[in-house]
Design a protein around this nucleic acid. Structure first.
Length: 319
DNA sequence: GGCCAGGTTCGCT
DNA sequence: AGCGAACATGGC
């Protein structure tokens, strides 16, 4: 028997409730296509880099939110059961299938503002990035500038440095590894639109990872506090970036990017104000949502981006 | 044309 | 500790 499994569908059973459409849409920032990922016509695709070998994954839903089931098809040149297993694990993490949102929903029943979000966005899990490095670079590129510009910079970086694989006439890209970025120059990074400062951050962290000085993946076993301390020692990483990584790379439940302008504005609206709350107020207020602030943050952004801005409104009764 | 966007660092008090 | 400037680009 052969251990090759080309194009054999693999079944994944997420922890319910799980809304595949919503979660996959979030993974592509509700844009359909975002760098390495696409979600079009019900198919989520991503080019995976498994130990340097590239595979195209295609995921579709074959179940429902309350009884979820996903079908995964892998395509690549050297597919065998060993790498397939790793690829499945990656997809499960990226699509957050193993997360259990029920404890969060239980807490949400105590807060009208949250109940509204969890009702409409029922089954949204928090998508994860392919690696901690990927989340870090995407976050640095997104610092301060508008989502529009961040989109452009991120795509340009992936286009320029991401390894590619062509399947059925379509070229897909994976996220560039630290060593692929390490060998570039500040000038080359500036050409694709990065500021001198962002270029320094990106190059610096890539080289420190390549040299072995930093091991971001090793942080997965550490506490939230240790992760934040280690990350914020890296040039270019402040509290905002570290908190976003807790949410999107480490899958922690209580990340909260308190200096995020969009988040502060949304929380201002929840308070019935037209101006943003201060980071201090936001942290104070958010304590009642602990330890599920990653979910609150994700659901607020999902509401704003997915065509449900009305969900972000003051509660009828105070929280 | 100016100002601000899903921040961070650096160089001042 | 706390504050202001600089940073790149695009949209209003």
């Amino acid at each position: 028997m052969s251990d090759a499994l080309p194009e054999t569908p693999i079944t994944i059973v997420p922890v319910p409730p799980y809304d595949f459409d919503l979660t996959a849409a979030y993974a592509t920032y509700f844009r359909g296509r975002y760098g390495t990922d696409s979600f079009e016509n019900g198919v989520f695709r991503r080019l995976l880099d498994v130990d340097g070998v590239l595979f195209l994954s295609g995921v579709t839903s074959t179940g429902s939110t309350s009884s979820p089931r996903l079908s995964l098809i892998l395509k690549g040149n050297s597919l065998n059961s060993f790498v397939a297993e790793k690829a499945v694990a990656q997809i499960e993490r990226i699509l957050g299938t193993g997360q259990d949102v029920n404890p969060f929903y239980e807490m949400a029943t105590h807060f009208p503002v949250l109940t509204r979000l969890t009702n409409v966005l029922n089954g949204l899990h928090v998508p994860q990035t392919g690696s901690v490095f990927e989340a870090l670079i995407l976050a640095v590129l997104g610092q301060q500038i508008s989502a529009q510009v961040a989109f452009k910079l991120r795509n340009a970086l992936i286009e320029t440095y991401g390894p590619r694989l062509t399947i059925d006439g379509v070229t897909y890209r994976a996220f560039p590894s630290p060593d692929l970025i390490s060998s570039t120059s500040l000038e080359a990074l500036r050409v694709i639109g990065l500021s001198a400062r962002k270029a320094e951050y990106v190059l610096d962290v890539s080289r420190r990872i390549t040299s072995g000085e930093i091991d971001l993946e090793a942080l997965r076993n550490r506490s939230d506090e240790e992760i934040i301390a280690t990350l914020t020692d890296i040039r270019g990483v402040g509290d905002w970036t570290a908190q976003w990584l807790l949410i999107r790379a480490f899958g922690r439940s209580d990340g909260f990017p308190a200096s995020d302008l969009a988040l502060l504005r949304m929380m201002g609206i929840l308070h019935g104000k037209s101006n943003p709350v201060s980071p201090k107020e936001a942290i104070e207020f958010s304590k009642r949502w602990s330890p599920f602030r990653s979910y609150v943050t994700t659901y607020l952004f999902a509401a704003a981006r997915s065509g449900h801005p009305e969900l972000i409104a003051p509660a009828d009764s105070p929280d």
